[in-house]
């Protein structure tokens, strides 16, 4: 892929038309980046009231934010929830994908169907259902982080399963396992030494994607648990009446965390 792209670039003289396209693209990027840049500027401004430009620049808001225990706690909770959900997802989906692609192909078809559910049911609708199910009864989970972990897990299923299925379909799975068996490896050994390394890149990308998705999740977190286990997004929502500079610093911090992850995901997918 990359090779053909490179070749195309070499053979292409930068025509005037080409320059137009570049201009349009950059104009769009600038337009899209504008709110973000404004937020960044606002988060760095000491005061920005009646004037065209801020009075002065300061790191005060960031220092305040990163010194705020409630923020740090929310950040830590969000991280914990995401990691727990991803760990659960990995632990359950990986064996499932392996089995679906070696033993029981019908499982693959079933998963393709189940994968649509998180998209088919809007979060608001889903959370109302979950609230009814788990508010009382034998499993009163509403208000605890457990329900969020389970719920976040279901959100990761499409990404994780699809990534694994794609990686598994890209290798001659049966022949690789057969070859490993004939060379003396047991099935678990064969999976660990031969199959899993080939899934690594795909799974990492799916993990990063799911992470950035979950990290920004608000609806389920707010409706199912709310302030009883405040996550980053819920915290941001609760801070909406606080200083705009402060929340801007929060948004920018959040954005950079995600940017970092996206960049890492890109690195991994390119080396795949």
């Amino acid at each position: 892929m990359r090779q053909t792209n490179q070749r195309r670039h070499h053979s292409h003289q930068p025509s005037p038309q080409h320059r137009h396209y570049t201009l349009i693209v950059w104009a769009l990027v600038g337009l899209l980046a504008l709110p973000l840049l404004a937020t960044l500027l606002y988060s760095l401004a000491s005061r920005w009231g009646a004037t065209m430009l801020p009075d002065g620049l300061t790191l005060r808001w960031y220092l305040e934010l990163w010194g705020e225990p409630r923020f740090l706690a929310a950040f830590a909770r969000s991280l914990l929830l995401c990691f727990a959900a991803l760990a659960l997802s990995l632990a359950l989906i990986l064996p499932l994908a392996l089995v679906a692609h070696t033993r029981w192909p019908w499982l693959d078809k079933l998963m393709k169907l189940l994968m649509l559910l998180p998209f088919a049911v809007p979060p608001v609708v889903g959370s109302v259902g979950l609230l009814q199910l788990y508010a009382g009864g034998p499993l009163p989970l509403v208000g605890t982080p457990w329900i969020l972990i389970a719920c976040f897990f279901t959100l990761t299923v499409p990404f994780m399963y699809q990534a694994m299925a794609t990686s598994l379909k890209a290798i001659p799975l049966r022949d690789l396992l057969d070859a490993a068996h004939l060379l003396g490896a047991s099935t678990p050994q064969a999976f660990i030494q031969v199959i899993l390394p080939n899934l690594r890149n795909g799974v990492l990308v799916a993990l990063f994607l799911s992470f950035s998705f979950l990290f920004g999740e608000f609806v389920f977190a707010n409706l199912l648990v709310g302030t009883r286990y405040e996550t980053l997004q819920v915290y941001l929502n609760n801070m909406r009446n606080h200083s705009g500079h402060f929340t801007s610093a929060l948004v920018i911090s959040y954005f950079f965390a995600i940017l970092l992850l996206t960049w890492m995901a890109n690195r991994f997918s390119r080396s795949a």
């Binding site: 290798i171 001659p172 022949d175 690789l176 057969d178 070859a179 490993a180 004939l182 030494q193 031969v194 390394p197 080939n198």
Partner: peptide, 11 residues
Amino acid sequence: MVFQNYALFPN
């Protein structure tokens, strides 16, 4: 055994 599609371990 040698397979038609080689079945070499890609990693």
